[in-house]
Simulated assay, not measured.
Amino acid sequence: MDNINFKALEIREVDNKFERNIIEKEINDLPEGDMLVKVKYSSLNYKDALSAAGNRGVTKNYPHTPGIDAAGVVVEDQSSNFQEGDKVIVTGYDLGMDTDGGFEEYIRIPSEWAVKLPQNLTLKESMIYGTAGFTAALSVYKLLASELPGKKVLVTGPSGGVGSFACSILAKKGYQVTAATGKTDARDYFNNLGVNEVISRSEIDDKSGRMLLKEKWDGVIDTVGGNMLATAIKSTKYAGAVTCCGNVASAELPINVYPFILRGVSLHGIDSVLCDKKLRTEIWDKLAADWKIESLASIGKEVGLNNLSKNIDKMLAGNSKGRIVVKL
């Protein structure tokens, strides 16, 4: 392909400060990989905001272009796994971490990182889901594969991207969803997600020190970790299951073995980064078909590269709402 110029958001360290600028790059500037993709849409995630702020726990080397999600059209693929013109979704692996990500008009990646866009899903819709929607769907998948004893499921962190999508998918599948949140006044929002009950997160933050608590939940999707996860596990019914995918409350888990050896509770860790390609494809197919959210278009706010930096600032300040879709 010709060495054309294109636009990208670049994060560069200057005098111990991190600056964001829209720059022009060339195809030859891209990292090694057997697939070249023209990016049509990306999305803004908290991990992207951290990378854009110079967080070395996310991105080690700068200058860098964030964007852990990308959706676009294959320009060339040396592996022959895809054809020119195929529409693909790229999430996970090292995209946007230390490999330049979706906040640029072209990406070059290993072809195994890509999944073909399913029928009944547009490129923009795939980025409204993004890593958050994929993680939520993977959590639901693992939960339902556990053959829960009943239909009552607790979701923690339900106002976040993963929690919101999890609530909507579970409700669509006929489960009775309880949302544990610090935003109990936002009942209309949770009702629109299909939530049956809204409780204060303080109700699942038990500090009594008891080994087991009253059985309440057939299943739990936890996005926050810490003592709330421990409380949820202790409150899960016999043969119930819990998934875990976040640590915003804490990375520590103050738990004992009794829920597992006396109630047979299962705990499933959710990793959306290195998820098996076959399972990754199956999850995207579900998000495009029977798990597809009818109100998906209303969830995503579209911005361009020129407006991306101020949306990053809003996210870092905790003032971001909904899903931010980046049109390249």
Rank of each mutant, 00 (worst) to 15 (best):
F134D: 03
K116P: 01
P149C: 13
T156D: 08
P118M: 05
Q176V: 11
G163L: 05
G160C: 13
K142W: 07
G130K: 11
V153L: 05
T122P: 12
G160R: 01
L143K: 09
K152E: 15
L148V: 11
Q119R: 14
G161M: 11
K116I: 14
I107H: 06
P158D: 08
A137E: 14
L170P: 03
L123M: 13
L138R: 13
K151F: 04
L148M: 13
K173G: 00
T131E: 04
T122Y: 08
K151R: 14
G157L: 10
T122H: 02
Q119I: 00
V153M: 11
I109T: 05
E112M: 00
K173P: 00
N120D: 15
L123Y: 01
A114T: 05
Y175D: 08
S164V: 02
V162Y: 03
G133D: 08
C167Y: 03
S146G: 06
K152P: 06
A145H: 02
A166D: 10
A145M: 12
E104W: 00
G163H: 06
Y175Q: 09
L154N: 11
S159Y: 04
R108W: 06
E112V: 03
T156Q: 03
G174F: 02
L154V: 12
V162D: 01
S168F: 01
F134N: 08
E112P: 00
S146Q: 11
L144W: 02
A166Q: 09
F134G: 06
G157V: 04
L144S: 06
Y129C: 10
K142M: 12
S146L: 02
Q119S: 15
I107T: 05
K116A: 10
A132Q: 04
Y141E: 14
Q176E: 15
S146R: 03
G163R: 07
L117K: 12
Y175P: 02
S139V: 11
A166H: 06
T131Q: 03
S146I: 00
T131S: 14
G174I: 10
A114I: 03
K116W: 02
S139T: 09
S159A: 15
L143T: 12
L148T: 08
K151Q: 15
G161Q: 11
V115I: 15
F134P: 02
